[in-house]
Every structure is written in structure tokens, then in C-alpha cells.
Nucleic acid binder design. Structure first.
Lengths: 352, 352
DNA sequence: TGTTAGCACTCAGTAAGACCGAGTGCTAAA
DNA sequence: TTTAGCACTCGGTCTTACTGAGTGCTAACA
């Protein structure tokens, strides 16, 4: 999709990127020559760098400064490096054994909790901000259980469990003159008749049956059954974020924090990235949120067949430790998706 | 408990505090004289300020700077001001009507969600960081419902509801050779026999009955029933926090963010403040967490009788808009506690 | 022809000095 | 007891000079 760099240019580019990632300051020709042991003199490297700049892989903050990789430079670097788990984080062994334990003893029905504890660990290992996302209600979910529990004289607690592991919980105040028992009876019959049906089916059925009931019953049953789960997004931030030089400017940090507060925009990004599958890397302004321009987002969707169950992601500066982050996320993608598919009953074969 | 200031000193102190809250820079004698229309000349005010400094209410960053209130100064100011809701936030009307709606249509069983949406609003209104806290499992909670739901062939989903509104959810993988039906039967009988009993009672009972069962059953039942809910703390942060001049120093901001990440310390503070009841204000180093020294924490416990159901709090700089925050928190304390006590069945009369 | 040494040039960052002005403490007068 | 006046202090800012990392270009070299 893009031109290929010759060997020497690639060496210089990757040394520049690595140097910039490590030191967070523009990288000069001498540093590339000495620290990375390239067998070319600084002058040669300068020539190569000038070419790379012309082709858009590097920039120049000002005349007498070293080079900084552009988004295009980072992109080329990420696409053409081969990262391996071995060389990744030293803590990767502990991540692996952590997954061994938690994936063995948990069910994907507790997906949100499992992902939360995993990504909490990942956030602490990498010092970037980890994200766990669980999408809202989807009509493909199947009803596992619908229980109505009377609370005191006037309240009913509705608990609805679906095979996506979602537990919906809502308390409803009964109108005057209602008996909790009657409502509970209706709930029990729904539970018995609709178990394992898709939510959309249950709703249709409920609509049909409700024709027969009075107005007030209808409304109460609706309140009890039709509550959508909002998408849930959890952030695991570390205070190291503020330490990074790209965020030393308060207004930049501010913009990023604003993005984390307004979760909607992030949600949309994750939704878009589901299609791609596997590990997606959005570098700098490759993502559509302006405030997230100085950041890179690495994300992994979790799927059961074609059903999107959730996503995990990691947000760091563009100058991110790709050699650590990408193997870790690849590893997570494999382990988590494997776990989901082997533990959850597959939902796709509706032909059975 | 402390000496009382004479009228003039009080005027000067409160003008200084107000000025510092508003402008975030040391306040000089002329500002106090002009902006607050005190009928004393700057020279007089300087004398008063020197006295106040000697008594520990004000400080001096350096010779040629104005005065800054000390924690003692803020404390005196807070204790001796009378704040009223009328003069508080202009948005207070919207808070009030928001509470009207949400408290009417929700039950305290959904406490965490209700508090979350309320404090989310408060955080946005005040631009400080709001905290919602729900403590972990307590033995006084009573069992409302215990359901075991088979999921696929090998998993059981346990759902345990208590009258504190807590929904415990856990999935357990059955050992080889178990039939889900048998376990479900045990769960049903427990549900029928223990409804409305305190968790501690149920546990004892379960221990007794389990004597009769085999080892493997015992372990599985334990996993299903004995899961404690961890305390849950939610933060509603706003990006304005980073804009405040006291946090322009990155290391200070960093320390505060670290406190927000390590929620344990905050939890302990809230636990301690339950006893006091009503609105607690901890100014600066009055709270025991070092990183929170530049902050003030305002908190309100929520009680049903003597049972602690949760707390809400607000963290801002010591230079906080007390005249807005305190009335709002007082109002929240009254409305929320009133709602809880009128809607939840009281738990105290165990004499019945 | 590709590579390298040398050199003049550029420019951010820092340090030193001068200056400004807000604010104080003290003294003496009202 | 209050206030006006005045000398003094000292952080912040602006100016200037300097330093040094790094560049681009040219010419020599292999």
C-alpha cells in the first residue's frame, strides 16, 4: 500500500523511532550513529534523514533540532517491525500466569470483571491507560433467567440474566392497588416460557400477550422487562500519564482527559474497529477524535463467533512502546478469544 | 473549641479567604480594602493581617506578597460562615428538580446507580471530583433471594440479592460428574428457607447443613454462596481539575491522581467519617493522606437507621468554593437520607 | 558514485542582569 | 486608635548574551 524503504533508510528510520520512543526528544544524526551502532557516519545519516523527511516519515521541529517521526513514520515502523512476546515486557510471564489462573476459574459470563482485572494489571505493567468496554444490550442475547423478587410491600426487583453474562437489575414501584404476587406470577410464567429465547423474540411475545392485560399491568411489566443496558466503559488510568513529556503542556493533558470523560466518542471508535478484528493500532490522528491526536490507541475486540462481546484497549502517547504493547495485546487477543470460544456455548449454529 | 475572633478580624479573615478562593493568588491589604469595601485603610488591614498571621490564620509566601489563608484560617472560615442554598450554585434549582425525578422513580435498592447519576451531575456543576462509595458486604444484610441458574452443561450462575440492594453475581464451573440439577435443588431449598435472614445467619445455617454433604458439594456451594462484595468506589472527575493553579505543578497533580487510583486510603477516610454523620469537611492536611494535602474533602454518609449504606463526597482544592459546595452537600444529605429512610423498610427494629 | 570530514550557520534553552510593581513593616502624624 | 507616608523586599518579567546540539552544504576521499 505504500512504497518500501531500502535497507539503509529502514535502519535509520527505525533507529530514529526507537530513539525518540526512548528519549522523548528529537533524535540527531550522531545519536543514531553512536547509540544504534549504524556503520554510517553522521553525515550520511543526515542525508538519509533529509530524504526520509522529504518523503514524510520524519519532521523537524526547528533547524537546529534532531528529527521526530511523523505519524507516517510511526505507521511504517509499526507495520514493518516484527515484535515478539519474548522481548516484550519482563513482566509478561506474570501476565501469562495471571491469565492462566483467572481464565481457568472464571466464566465468560463474568466478562466485565475478568477483563477489568486483566486490564488493570496491563495498565500497571505498561503505565498507559487501559480501557475495557462492554457494549449495550443486543437483541441477539438470549434470556437465561427472568426473576421478579418482591421487596417490601410496594416494590418489585426485576433481575434479568442473558447468555452474554449481563445481569440487568431494576427496581420498580408498583402503582396503588397492585399485589406483588400477581406480578410475580406473570414473571414466573414468562421465565418458564421464554427461557433461552432471544430478547427480541421475548419482546414480541410479550407485546402480543400484553394485549390481553390492562393498561396498568402493561406499563409495569414494560418497566420491569424493557430496560436496556447501556454500554459500559471502564478506564484504568495510571498517574504516570501526566509525567510524560508530551502531556507536560496542561492544555494537551486537559484535552485527553476530556476525551476520557466523554466516553461516547471512544465507544464509537471501538465499535468501528470490531470489524477489523485482531489488534488494531491507531496512531495519532488516525483516530477521529481531535483531543486524542497526541495518542495512540491499540485495541482488541472480543468475539464469540460473530457476536461482539466487548473490547479491550490501551491508550498511550504516540511515542508508545510498541515493541511491548503490541505483543501483549496480540497475546491478550489470542488468550481471551480462545477462552471465550472454548467456554461459552457457540451462538452461531441456529440450524441445530 | 478555639478562640473567637473579634468583628474586625473576622471581616478581614473572611475577605482574605474569599479573595483567595476567587483569585487563587495571595491577597494584599489593598485588595481587601477595595474589593470588599471594608471601611478600614490598607494600613489598618495590614496590622490586622499581621495579627492574624501571628495567630496562625494566615501565611506569607514571601515578604512582598499578600496573605494566604492557612488550613486553620479556612477551618475558622468554614465553621463561622453561614452558607445558604439560595446563594449557592445557580444550577441548584436543576439539582433539586433532578432529585425530585430520580428519587421518586428509583428505589434505594439501586442506590449505587442513583448516587452515581446524582454525583455525576454535582461533579459537572461544581467542577470538582465527586466520589460515590458503596461499602462491601456487611453481615447485617438480609437475603432477599438466592437463585442458581444453570448455564450450559458445566456452569452455574449464582445470583444473590440482599436488602441493601446488592446483587452478587458469580459463575462457578462445576466439578466433573456433577449434575447442575442437584445443585440447583440445593439452592432452591436454601432460597425458600432463608429468605429474609441475615447473611451471617444463613452462613451458620449453611455450615451446619453442609456437615451432611460430601466434600465436593460443600466446596461448590461455598463458592456459590460465599462471595463477598468488595467496596465499590466510583469517581466522577472533570478535566477542570488540571486547570486549577494549585495543580499546575505536575508533581502535585500526580500525587492527587495517585490517591484517586489507590482507592483504599480514601475508603478508610469515608469509613471513619460515617460516625460523625452529616456533612464533614476535611480541609487540607486534616485528612491523613499526604497526597491529598492540597485538597479539601467534603463528604456525606448515607444511613438507614444505623446501617451505613454508602457515602458521597466531593474533592476539590483547599481553595474550594465552600459557599457553594457546603449547601449543596447539606441539601444532598437531607434529601438522600430522607429518601432512604422513607422508602426502605427500616432495619433496626429487630424486636418485632 | 557513494561516503565522509569540515565548517559555517541556525536556533532553542539557559543564565545573568536590569527593572517593575505589588505588597509589606515601620514610623510619625492626625 | 487609625491612617498616611516611605523605605524596603522580592517574585516575575523582559533583555541580552552565551552555549551547544544539530543541521545543510561543499569539497575531498575511496
Amino acid at each position: 500500500m505504500s512504497e518500501t524503504l531500502d535497507e539503509r533508510s529502514w535502519m535509520v528510520l527505525s533507529a530514529t523511532v526507537n530513539g525518540y520512543i526512548r528519549m522523548a526528544v528529537p533524535v540527531g544524526s550522531r545519536v543514531v550513529n553512536r547509540l544504534f551502532g549504524l556503520s554510517y557516519s553522521p553525515a550520511t545519516i543526515r542525508n538519509v534523514m533529509a530524504d526520509l523527511e522529504e518523503e514524510g516519515y520524519l519532521t523537524h521541529p526547528h533547524t537546529s533540532a534532531g528529527r521526530i517521526p511523523t505519524a507516517k513514520g510511526f505507521r511504517y515502523f509499526v507495520d514493518n517491525s516484527s515484535f515478539s512476546m519474548q522481548e516484550a515486557l519482563p513482566e509478561s510471564a506474570s501476565l501469562s500466569s495471571f491469565l492462566d489462573v483467572i481464565l481457568d476459574e472464571s466464566s465468560p459470563l463474568d466478562l466485565l470483571e475478568v477483563l477489568s482485572s486483566v486490564m488493570n494489571l496491563v495498565a500497571r505493567m505498561t503505565n498507559y491507560t487501559a480501557i475495557v468496554l462492554e457494549p449495550g444490550t443486543r437483541n441477539e442475547e438470549r434470556l437465561l433467567s427472568f426473576e421478579l423478587i418482591p421487596v417490601g410491600e410496594r416494590h418489585i426487583l426485576a433481575i434479568l440474566v442473558t447468555d452474554a453474562g449481563a445481569v440487568y437489575k431494576r427496581t420498580v414501584l408498583l402503582p396503588e392497588g397492585f399485589r406483588t404476587k400477581e406480578i410475580v406470577f406473570l414473571g414466573d410464567s414468562l421465565n418458564a416460557s421464554s427461557r433461552n429465547a432471544q430478547l427480541s423474540e421475548v419482546r414480541e411475545k410479550l407485546f402480543d400477550e400484553m394485549e390481553l392485560l390492562g393498561e396498568a399491568y402493561r406499563e409495569t411489566l414494560q418497566q420491569l422487562f424493557f430496560h436496556n443496558r447501556m454500554p459500559e466503559m471502564k478506564l484504568f488510568r495510571t498517574s504516570r500519564f501526566a509525567e510524560m513529556p508530551e502531556f507536560s503542556d496542561a492544555s494537551v493533558l486537559h484535552a485527553v482527559m476530556e476525551v476520557f470523560e466523554e466516553k461516547m466518542a471512544l465507544l464509537e471508535i471501538f465499535e468501528d474497529l470490531v470489524r477489523q478484528g485482531g489488534v488494531s493500532v491507531q496512531i495519532g490522528s488516525e483516530n477521529p477524535i481531535p483531543g486524542l491526536k497526541p495518542c495512540t490507541l491499540v485495541s482488541v475486540p472480543l468475539l464469540n463467533g460473530s457476536i461482539w462481546l466487548g473490547s479491550v484497549g490501551l491508550v498511550g502517547p504516540v511515542r508508545m512502546q510498541y515493541d511491548q504493547v503490541i505483543p501483549v495485546m496480540q497475546y491478550l487477543s489470542v488468550r481471551l478469544n480462545h477462552w471465550i470460544q472454548n467456554t461459552l456455548p457457540s451462538q452461531s449454529p441456529s440450524t441445530t
